[in-house]
Design a protein around this nucleic acid. Structure first.
Lengths: 74, 74
DNA sequence: GAAAAATTCACATTATAGTGTGAAAAATGA
DNA sequence: TCATTTTTCACACTATAATGTGAATTTTTC
């Protein structure tokens, strides 16, 4: 999942919930500037910032083994 | 998924694949120091760094809607 | 189509993630 | 055991994410 994809998912979810960047940034306790850049894929955000945002949006992050690779090194 | 959880998942997967921190850091093209801190939850890594690591490990990141919240704001 | 609201953007500053080095400590294995 | 490998750690430095401000632009709404 690329950074720009994450940004897009966040933007789509925010729109679906009908809240503004300003609202979301305040609820997530981050700057509107940071949110703006993330949605546009113009920054390389930290996990902490992403977690704050998706928590407000009712999303969750998961790590899973890609089924195409049991052992990616072999 | 907390930062420490991500670090733990990475460490477990690395051990399962029987590679060293040194090997993984080189394959992911990041410093061993950064990997060491991530595995121990001692840093707040950027998405880019996490993506590099999990790509080598054959893992993938996913965002999903928490089933407990259709609308987290209401 | 004017006013209000929301988003985009540039710029400067601050905070901190990422790196490199080298050494100590712990784990591995012959 | 003891030599080798791996991990842990401190420290200094560099790169850049995050923030704050204010203004321009775009979108929404009446």
């Amino acid at each position: 999942m690329l950074i720009s994809e994450i940004g897009n998912r966040i933007k789509l979810r925010r729109k679906a919930l009908r809240i503004t960047q300003s609202d979301l940034s305040q609820l997530a306790n981050i700057s509107i500037n940071t949110l703006y850049k993330i949605e546009r894929g113009q920054t390389n955000p930290t996990i902490d910032i992403i977690e704050k945002i998706i928590a407000v949006l009712g999303l969750e992050m998961k790590l899973s083994v890609k089924e195409s690779s049991i052992n990616p090194l072999s």
